[in-house]
Design a protein around this nucleic acid. Structure first.
Length: 508
RNA sequence: GCCCCCAUCGUCUAGAGGCCUAGGACACCGGCUUUUCAUGCCGGCGACAGGGGUUCGAAUCCCCUUGGGGGUACCA
């Protein structure tokens, strides 16, 4: 899509209203890919022009999520660049200057309708089944009149005089899109608070930051004619546009932060929506990225797994699809399971520690894991292989990080496995304890021989021995194989936990 | 309401007129493995929204219908 001579410059322009949304992450990824693919530049620009919606430290959060994904920008917050500032709130003079030019050229005008008048216009438009709501004043207020009104304290905005013609857009993904301007109206450029609207700031900044390709969500498609009209009025060039399909929930609703609140209200576990949610839930960025890439893009071959370098090598805008996609969490989980076995042990360790840090405040096992030796964490990870997310590692292997007396017993497991049948399980635990006390060497083989011995002595099935043992040392019915479980604990800890269990649940 | 976009298995998709009795992956179902939970391996089920054209021939091109999505702000 690029001529060889053109240096590609793309941007991601989020408004700082919270964490990076999963859909935004996909947009970041595709922009990053396009820039890296062609040796271009990836700009991060913060669109903080809505004073009411800006959230404290939102930029910091977005930046952190992008870094976690491994999608570094070349210009923008924290890294600077020659075409800044990269926060729109710090570019106010630039927008005013361009607004004045538009006013002077007669391409824009001051408008002074009150909110009530605008509401009335909307009403009548609806009644008359018109698509345009705003009616251009005739005659237009002069600049002098606008200034005077502003001076008098009235709320005054600046609107663009839209040309009366259709606008044809060539979209790199959608193809030719004809947008009849019959229904486009004179939209606001400068708000009465002196801030530019999104449309205005976006067009001015894209020009000044020399953006060549605009890759954004399809919800922006209908903004494009406005932007093109504005570019023409300003004498700007028009970048190439590519509108990405939208990502939805499996039920077809939009993935929104509101889903979390709704789930909580219903007493259910909130779904992951923001990148940060997936990070906290124990997903690998490798898996998330791979999954996201395949949401809207396809390599055209029957290949499924890609890391960033491979993605970079294969990505082309031509292979981005037009159809909206649903976010299949099951498939993401499957990707995560696979990626956990594809990354190096060192990388897996690093990712797990990141997860543990994020969860240390809420989960004692995560906190305990942070105090463990790296090599020990790796042994736990290996013993839990096949896990879905790191959250499952905590469930299955968390017992290994805890101090012996910090182990809590699951009431149901204790009842079912230890206490039932006057108490069958406890007797097994007692027998095992004695046998293990006599065992001097501690290996998977010796552990296994003891378990087999006790099993045949008591005439039980394997499960009848392994489960009581598992509950006794981990407090629960889920853990790695019994040999791995005991190897992780070692002889001393195993014996300590067995004795503690007998003390807590055994017969006096 | 008006404008715009989209349309292949439940989901993500391959397919750019004959290679298609439509391929892959996830999910699902069945089997194997098994000391818990998972993983892993093998097999199975499963789609071109409907109707008209164009063509020797259409999932692929055109039109209509239907369905889904987006826009219609002094939000971005």
């Amino acid at each position: 899509m690029n001529s060889a001579s053109e240096k590609i410059r793309v941007r991601f322009a989020p408004s700082p209203t919270g964490y990076l949304h999963i859909g935004g992450a996909r947009t970041v990824l595709f922009n990053w890919l396009l820039a890296r693919k062609h040796g271009g530049a990836f700009v991060l620009r913060i669109e903080d022009t809505d004073q009411a919606r800006n959230l404290e430290d939102s930029t910091g959060k977005i930046v952190e999520d992008m870094r976690w994904l491994g999608l570094q920008w070349d210009e923008g917050p924290e890294v600077g660049g020659g075409l800044g500032p990269y926060f729109q709130s710090r570019r106010l003079e630039i927008y005013s200057r361009h607004a004045e030019q538009l006013l002077a050229d007669g391409n824009a005008y001051y408008a002074m309708e009150t909110p009530e008048e605008l509401a009335a216009m909307r009403e009548s438009a609806k009644r008359e089944r018109r698509s345009t709501t705003y009616i251009r004043p005739d005659p237009l207020p002069t600049v002098a009149e606008g200034l005077a009104a502003k001076q008098a304290g009235r709320a005054v905005v600046i609107r663009l005089k839209m040309p009366r013609e259709d606008i044809r857009v060539h979209d790199e993904i959608l193809g030719e899109v004809v947008l009849p301007l019959e229904q486009a109206e004179d939209f606001v450029l400068m708000k009465s608070d002196g801030f530019p609207t999104y449309h205005f700031a976006c067009v001015v900044d894209d020009e000044l930051m020399q953006i060549t390709h605009v890759l954004r969500g399809q919800e922006h498609l209908m903004n494009t004619p406005k932007h093109i009209a504005l570019q023409r009025a300003l004498g700007f060039h028009t970048p190439r546009y590519a509108h990405l399909p939208v990502i939805f929930n499996m039920d077809g609703t939009k993935m929104s932060k509101r889903d979390k609140e709704k789930a909580i209200a219903k007493g259910m576990k909130p779904p992951e929506i923001d990148v940060h949610d997936f990070r906290t839930a124990g997903y690998l960025p490798e898996a998330l990225l791979n999954f996201l890439a395949l949401l809207g893009w396809s390599p055209g071959e029957e290949l499924e797994f890609f890391d960033l370098p491979e993605l970079k090598a294969r990505f082309t805008i031509e292979r981005v699809g037009k159809t909206n996609a649903k976010f299949d969490r099951e498939k993401l989980i499957s990707f995560n399971t696979t990626w956990a076995t594809r990354v190096t042990p060192a990388r897996l360790l690093e990712a797990f520690k990141d997860f543990a840090r994020l969860n240390a405040g809420a989960d004692s096992r995560a906190a305990a894991a942070l105090r463990a030796e790296d090599s020990f964490i790796q042994r736990v990870l290996a013993a839990c292989s096949g896990f879905r997310t790191f959250a499952d590692v905590l469930i299955k292997g968390g017992f290994a990080f805890l101090d012996d007396d910090a182990v809590t017993y699951d009431a149901k497991a204790v009842e079912k496995v230890l206490l039932k049948n006057n108490p069958q399980g406890i007797k097994v635990v007692a027998a095992l304890t004695e046998a293990f006390e006599r065992l001097s060497s501690w290996s998977a083989e010796s552990i296994d021989s003891v378990v087999q011995q006790v099993r045949s002595t008591l005439g039980l099935q394997m499960g009848g021995v392994a489960q009581p043992l598992r509950v006794a040392v981990t407090g629960n019915t889920i853990s790695p194989s019994i040999q791995d479980t005991l190897m992780l604990l070692g002889r001393n800890q195993t014996l300590a936990r067995l004795q503690r269990c007998l003390k807590a649940h055994g017969q006096k």
